[in-house]
Every structure is written in structure tokens, then in C-alpha cells.
Amino acid sequence: MKEQLKGLVQPFHTLNKKAMLALIVGETAIALLLWQLSGSELIPRPTDIMKSFFTMLHSNPEFMENIIISLSLSFQGMGISLILALFISYLSLIPLFSPIANFIIKCRYLTLAGLNFTFIVLLPNDPHLLKISLLLFGIVPFFVTSFLSILDGINTQEYDLCKTLRMNSWQTMWEVVIVGRIDQALEVMRQNFAISWIMITTVEGLQMSGGGLGTMVVKSSRFIDLGTIYAILLTIFFLGVFFDYILGVIRHWLFPYTKLQIRK
């Protein structure tokens, strides 16, 4: 027992699954308890949030609808962004296109709020397309940034191996960068999923006609309806955690070798 307690504060000490689970449950419980006790008018307590969550689920049909709207927007946005980002990243290896990829990376610093107007002018009649375009504009630079840093980290010996196997540069690119790193593309998507949700709530807040959780947040904040806002945040949080997990599972399932790269 004493040994186990010592292990809790030792760097690199690994706990077994059961102990880790107990630790997570324990720490969560303590956090919730502290939150509940310290709650005030401005910060709704966990019980308040749960209450408004269930009221919303039962009495507000729009809630479910908005979840679905946001989810479908997020899937479309993520899917298209991933394909676009991969394409741009691959092209960046060809000198002709590398300046373009570098510019796109820098677009991280452009904020969506200011560009909203331009997009509205360009796409006046199609709120869905407008939202998707804003979303792509918001996500792709982050995807490309992460993916390019993965490509930068490829050991040059792997390219040397391809040369000695007489692959030409296109075959090398296919083997090492495309096939060899497709699992990491999925990982980049997983890691950036959170960013996509930030973008979605922003985009839906900017472009309210189509509904969605982002629209709900903006509307609720006009009425300072804190319970609802927090309930929506909670929903987004758990959806995020859920998809994070699912994407991780899918990655291990599609690419069994990724399990081996986690050093225990």
C-alpha cells in the first residue's frame, strides 16, 4: 500500500488499469464536489447544469435537432478538411506548390470573425455552403500545420531505404509519405477535432440562420441563461470526448501497427 502511494507521485511510474480508473473516478468526484460547494449565481453548480440539461432534453425539441445539425456540419467539415489538408501537405513536397502550403499554414493567424463578411458577400444565397467554407478556412491551416510537422519528422534513412529499393521519387512519396503516414493523418484529425468544435460554435454563432449548438449558445447568452449555456458546453464536451475515443479505436483497428508504437 505504501509502495503504491509512493508510485502515485513518481515520474514514469505506470499504474495498472484498475488503479488508474479508480484514480480518475476519485479525482473527478473531488473536482465535482469542490465545484458544487464553491458554486454561486455566476457559476452554475454541477447539479444545476444537470438539471437544465435534462429539462432541455425533455422540453426543448430544438436541442436534439441542433445537436444533429452541428454534428453533421462537423463531420462534413472534418471530412473535407482532412482531404484538403492532406492534398495540400502532399503537394507541399513538390517545390512548385510549397509556397502555397506555407502560406496556408500562416492563415492560422486570420480570425474567422473578421472574414465572415467577405464570405457572406461571396456566398449570399447558401448559408450551408457558407458555414462549410468558413469551417474549412478555420480548420485546414491547423491540419496542414500538424501534418507537415509529422512529415518533417520522417527519418531520412527511410527515404534512403526507398532509394536502395530503386523507387523513384513518386514511388517514395507514395510509400513513405502517403501510405506510411496515413495513420498519422487520422491522428492529426483526432487531435484537431477540438479545434473543429471551436470553429463550429463560432461559425454557427456568426451565421445563425441554420441553427446548431453554436446558435443556441449565442441566443442563450443574450438572455444570460447560464444553465442552458453550460448544458450545451457539457454536451459539446462529452461529444468531443466520445469522438476522441472512437477515432482512437478506429485508428488502432485500421492500422494495427499503431498500437506497437506506444511504448509501455
Partner: peptide, 17 residues
């Protein structure tokens, strides 16, 4: 030319995927 001579580098690099 590269590709005419096989190499086995110090750390035996292979395609991990």
C-alpha cells in the same frame, strides 16, 4: 547511382507500416 547498391543501415530501418 542510389539503388544500385543495397544498404543495411546501423539501425535496420524497415517500413513500420
Amino acid at each position: 547511382k542510389p539503388g544500385e547498391v543495397g544498404i543495411i543501415p546501423q539501425n535496420y530501418i524497415l517500413f513500420n507500416h
